[in-house]
Structures are given as C-alpha cells and as structure tokens.
C-alpha cells in the first residue's frame, strides 16, 4: 500500500476534528474525499502533511510509520500538497515560485512548463499578478516540482471558471495516466471529483460514513447529493 491511515485522530489545538479514521491508498490510485463544509476534509489532508495536530493513530507510507516526521520531511517521502489557499509567493516570479520548490526528479521547469504552457508565458510575472486559474496552475506545478508520488488537492476548482476547471481536470487525468501519480482530491464539486477518481469516501463529523467506488456514487448521484449537500 502506498498510504495507510490507521485510526487517525487529529485536529488543532485541543479540538478533535477527525476521529478514528482509517483508509488505504494503492499506488496510482485516485481518491475523492466528499462531505459538507466543516466535516474534516481539509483536516485530513493537513494531518497527512503534518500541518495539523495528530492525537492518535498511525500514518504509514509504503509500510513505514511517518506520524512523527516533521512536515518538511514528508515532502521528501513523496507527498505533494496543493493547498486550498494556493499560497503563491506574491513577490516571487512564477519561475521563482517553481524553483523555490525544486527537488531532483523527473519534473523540472521544462516538465512543468510542458504541462502548463500558460505558466511559461507568464514566467516573469510576479505571483500576485496572476488570474485565479493561473495561480491554481502554479500551485499544482509547484507541488510537482517537489517530485511527489501522491498529490493532495484541496478544493482545486474553487472559484474557477468552468472552462478552466475543465482544463485542470484534463491535466489531472494526464498526471494519472501519463505519469502514474496517485491523488487525493477534496472538492465541493462532487461530480467533478468523482469523475476523476477511482474511489470515494464521504466524511461526516470527522468520520467516514460511506466508502465505495466513485462510479457507484456517480451512478446514484441523487443519493450521493443527500449525503453531502448542505
């Protein structure tokens, strides 16, 4: 198994948000994480990346426990995070934003630009002179520069125009099919996320309430909606 989450209890400060949560992911697998706002989807990603407080349980990477490893070292394992806030460095250029994350591997500047030609055109723009879609592309490209094995997308389509969403979906598909990335995607647009993924889990109040193939949830989307709609 690529990633095993065993009985994870996590949160921030004294607040427990995820309770006794378990899941596994195989190499090159795509997992959608669905649920209403505030059920712990982002916390799950943050806990995996070492940016939340882990109260209990274990996180294993290819069989090895990494629960105690600091956040920066988890990137070395092969975890790549595309955060919801995107967190582009505003006074660095597009290219500098990429270079600052560079770690040796197959993805370098050229690879990132091949995937996102738009970023190459904008490579001298400062990080705060980009459209929302470009920022999201940069956030994904920057995560790729760390040469991860598993990508964690947190609401990648939030606030983007449908045509950009379509492009990004296409890119994420390519990352799976051509490069064999595994990914976890947290997304309010459940249909989009399910369309990209093999499996899906639905969270409610910090627990998994449904776990099945993505196609099943898609097929019975009305019922799925009742699980996740506000």
């Amino acid at each position: 198994m690529l990633l095993e989450v065993e009985g994870l209890t996590a949160g921030y400060g004294d607040a427990v948000i995820l309770e006794d949560l378990s899941l596994t992911m195989a190499e090159s697998e795509g997992l959608a994480v669905l649920g209403r706002n505030g059920v712990g989807k982002t916390t799950l990603i943050r806990a995996i990346m070492g940016h939340a407080r882990q109260f209990g349980g274990r996180l294993k990477w290819r069989g090895n426990d990494f629960s105690n490893r600091p956040a920066a070292e988890r990137v070395e394992l092969g975890l790549g995070w595309v955060p919801q806030e995107r967190d582009i460095f505003p006074s660095l250029t597009v290219e500098e934003n990429l270079l600052v994350a560079r770690r040796p591997g197959r993805f370098d500047l050229d690879g990132a630009y091949a995937l996102f030609p738009r970023l190459k055109e904008r490579r001298r723009n400062l990080g705060d002179r980009l459209s929302g879609g470009e920022q999201q592309m940069l956030a994904i490209a920057r995560a790729l520069m760390t040469n991860p094995v598993l990508l964690l997308f947190d609401e990648p389509f939030e606030g983007l125009a449908p045509v950009i969403v379509e492009q990004l979906e296409h890119t994420i598909r390519r990352l799976r099919s051509e490069f064999g990335f595994a990914f976890i995607i947290v997304e309010q647009h459940a249909q989009d996320a399910l369309g990209l993924s093999d499996r899906a889990i639905v969270l409610d109040r910090g627990k998994i309430v449904r776990s099945s193939r993505a196609s099943e949830l898609l097929a019975d989307f009305d019922k799925t909606k009742s699980l996740i709609a506000v």
Binding site: A72, D87, F89, S91, L99, V100, R103, A143, T146
Partner: peptide, 24 residues
C-alpha cells in the same frame, strides 16, 4: 542561489515552506 530564494519564500509565507519540503 536556491537558498536565497527559499529565504524569500520564508519571508513571504513561512507556513507554506515546509509544505514544499523546505526546512524553515
């Protein structure tokens, strides 16, 4: 150098740096 770039990244957004594998 890349180190200098990382320093500027830290100034801009310290929180983000460990997430790209940079030991702040």
């Amino acid at each position: 150098s890349p180190f200098g770039l990382a320093l500027r990244g830290i100034r801009e957004n310290t929180r983000r740096m460990p997430a790209i594998g940079s030991p702040v």
